[in-house]
Design a protein around this nucleic acid. Sequence first.
RNA 1: GCCGGGAUGGCGGAACUGGUAGACGCACGGGACUCAAAAUCCCGCGCCCCAAAAGGCGUGCCGGUUCGAUUCCGGCUCCCGGCACCA
Length: 768
Amino acid sequence: AIKNNTAPAKWTYSNIEHMKTQLKRLGFAYDWSREFATCTPEYYRWNQWLFLRMLEKGIAYKKTGTVNWDPVDQTVLANEQVIEGRGWRTGAVVEKREIPMYYLAITRHSEELLSALDSLPGWPERVKTMQANWIGKSFGVRLAFPYELDGEAGRLWVFTTRADTVMGVTFCAVAAEHPLAARAARRDPGLAAFVDECKRGSVMEADMATMEKKGMPTGIFVSHPLTGEKIEVWVGNYVLMSYGDGAVMGVPGHDERDFVFARKYDLPIKQVIEVADQPFSLEAWQPWYTDHGKCVNSGKYDGLDFDRSVDAIAADLKAKGLGEKRVTWRLRDWGISRQRYWGCPIPIVHCPACGDVPVPEDQLPVVLPEDCVPDGSGNPLNKRGDFVNTDCPRCGKPAKRETDTMDTFVDSSWYFLRYACADQNGKMLDERANYWLPVDQYIGGIEHAILHLLYSRFWTKVMRDFGLVKLDEPFTRLLTQGMVLNEIFSRKSEGARVQYFNPADVELEFDEHGKRTGAKLKSDGKPVDSGGIRTMSKSKNNGVDPQSLIDQFGADTARFFMMFASPPEDTLAWNDDGVEGAYRFLRRLWKFAHDQMTVISGAKAATAARDNARRELHLLLQQANFDYERRQFNTVASAAMKMLNLLESNATPSRAPLLREGTSILLRILSPIAPHITQALWRELAFGPDILYAPWPLLDEAALVQDEIELVVQVNGKHRGAIRVPSDATRETIERMVLADANVQKYIAGQPVKKVIVVPGRLVNIVV
RNA sequence: GCCGGGAUGGCGGAACUGGUAGACGCACGGGACUCAAAAUCCCGCGCCCCAAAAGGCGUGCCGGUUCGAUUCCGGCUCCCGGCACCA
C-alpha cells in the first residue's frame, strides 16, 4: 500500500478479485456463495466480540511486551522489517521498546494442545512433532540457591531438566532483566553498561541463539542448595527471562553452552556423570558430555542412574524446602496487539477517569476507517481524530480509542468455522457449524505447521469452552504443501531499502556452455542481484502468476503440469520447462480420442479377456488408485500418460473393446486433474452426460493374473539375468530351475553354492 | 544455534514392506515426413572402458548391518521451512 500509495482496502479488494479470477479459470469447484473477506466489519466484529468475552474471563489480558522501534519513522517494526539490526526503510539502528499489549492465554491450554495431537491420526507426523516440540513440555526440578544480600535473605530460583548434575554446578547465570542483575547493576557501572547492552540486542530467538555468549560476574554469591558451597552469580546474555525463572544453573561438565561459557571465563568444570568407556580428563574429554549416565563425584548420589538420582535429589531439596519436581513449558502466551493500521481494531476505550473500558456489545463493531493511505511513519489511525476521539462508554466523558489492531492470525484462526454460516448476522456461529465441522481435509503450506495451526486449535478450544461450537479440534485431516521456491532478484537503492523484481521481468544471461553469467531487468537492461532461491512471497516479489500459463496453454495444462511436477508435500523450485510435455500429452489424448471415435463408441462393452495389454491397463489403474490414496498425484499423472501410450500402441479396430475400456478408465482417472478436457471427451465419446457423476473405474483383479512370471536372477547379489517360471511354482521348483539354467551355471562356474534365496514373485539370489 | 524436512542422470521426478536404480516427462542428439519451417512420428540418451559382446562404477559424504541398502543404523556436509510482529 505504501509503495502503491493506495488505501490498503482498495488494494486488498482488487487483489481478492484478481485471485478469484485465477481460481475460477483453473476450474476449482468452490462454493462461492459462502465467500466472505475477513477484513470486513461483518466478520471482524466477531473477533472483537469474542475478545471481549475472553477479557471477562481473563483469557485475554494486558501486560508489557518488547517491540522493535524505528526512531526515525517513529514506528514499530515487524521482525521481518529489521535487517541486520536496522529499519528496512530508514536504515536507522533499531531500538527495543517496552509497550503495553494484549495477550491471549494460550498456555492455559498447553496440556490439551499437546495431548490432543494423539487424537489426530490424519495429521502428518512431522507437523505433530513440530507442534509438540514448540509446546515443549519438560519435566525437571525447580530449585533455589539461597543467598544473603545487604542483610536480607533471598532465593535464586532456577529450573533444570538435569537435576542429576546439580552436584556439578560451578556458577549461576541470570537474564539481564532479572531482579538480581538489576540490583547488582546499581552498584557496578560496568555491569550496568553490560545489562544495557544485553537489553539492546535483537528480540528474535534465532539471533539470541547465534550471538556470542557473553557474561559478567555480579559479585553476588549464592549457596549450593545441597552442599552449601559458595557459587557466583553471572549475568548471561543467553539467559531468557521469558523461560522458567529467568535464571539457570551452570554445569559446564555436562552442558554444551555452559561449557563454552566456563571455558571463556575460566570457570571451574566438574565431572559428575560417568562417561561411558572413557576416563575423565578435561583435555581428552573434549568438549563435554551431555548423555545420561551414573552419578560420580556426587557424594551420596554416586552410582545412581538418571531417574534415581533425580528422584533422590528432588526429595532432598524438598525436605530442605529448596525445590521440587516441576513441569515447565516452552509455549508462551500469544501477543495479539499490533501497532498497525490495516487490521481489526481492538475494542477498548481509554478513559482518563475509568481506565481501559471495553466497548459495550451493542456498540460493536468498532469499524476501521478504510480510506487511510499510510506513509510508513507510524500508525495512520493515530492521526484520525474522528476515529480516536470518542466518549467513555462508562462515564460519558471524552476518551480515546485504542488504535492498536489485532494480529491477523486472529482472522485466520476461525474463518473455516464461519464458512458454515457466513450469512448469519445475529451471532458468531449457528448450529450449522456443528453440522459441517470439523474440516475433513485442510490444506496449507508447511510454513503454517506451528503458528497458524496452533492458534486455530487454541481458538477452537476457546470457542468450545464458551459453548459456541461442539468441537475439540478444527481439522481432521491435514495436507501440508511443500513450499514453491523461486529466485529472488533485487537492487539496493537509497539507504537500507531494497527493491525486488519479479522473475518474469528479469532476463537471464548465459555463456556458450549454458552457464549463468548474469541477470538483467528487461525494462532497463541493467543488471540485478540474485538473492538466492526462496519461498515465493509478496515481500520478495518472486511469485508466479498462473495466468500466463493459463493464457498460453489452458487451465487443464496448467493443472496437469503442476500436479505432474512433484508430490504436493515436497519443496519445489519453480521451473516451467516441463509445461510443454503436459500440453503435448493433453493434445495427444484429444487427437487419439477423435481419431478412434468411431472405434470406441462403436465397440461392445469390455470383455473379460486376459491378455498383456488388458493386464497392463488394470495394473495402471491399480497404480493410479494407490497413488490417489496416498496423495502422490505426480505418479497418477504418469499412470495416465502410460495408459495413453498403451492405448495408442493398440489403436487398431481389432482392439476395439480394449480401446473403449481403456479410454473410459483413462478419462476418469484423469478427470480430477484435467476436468475440462475429460468432460468434453466423455460426452463426445458418448460414455455419459457428465464425468463428474460417473462411477470410479472398477479394478478387474482377474485381469492381473498371469500364468508365467519372470524372476530376476542374481549371483552374489549381482544382476545376472532372468528366468520365466510358472506363477504357481514352489520354492523348490524355482531353485531347481534356476540352478539348471545354462546362463546361471556360467556365473556359478563350478563354485559351491552356499545358499539360494528365493523372494516370491521377485527374484532369486544364488550365493557362491 | 534449536526444532522439522530434504539431497537419486543435464533438469522435474519414479522405485509401494530391504529385492532389476533411473518409470513417466523435460532438455539434448540422430532419423522420417516437408521445397522449407512448425507440428507430428521413430530411435538414442547415468558415468567409464569398448567396434561390439562382455565388464566395471554409480542414489550428497564417511562408516556399519545384510545374501542383497536410494530404503535400516551411527557420524558428517549442504539446502529448504519454522523460531513467537511476514502470514
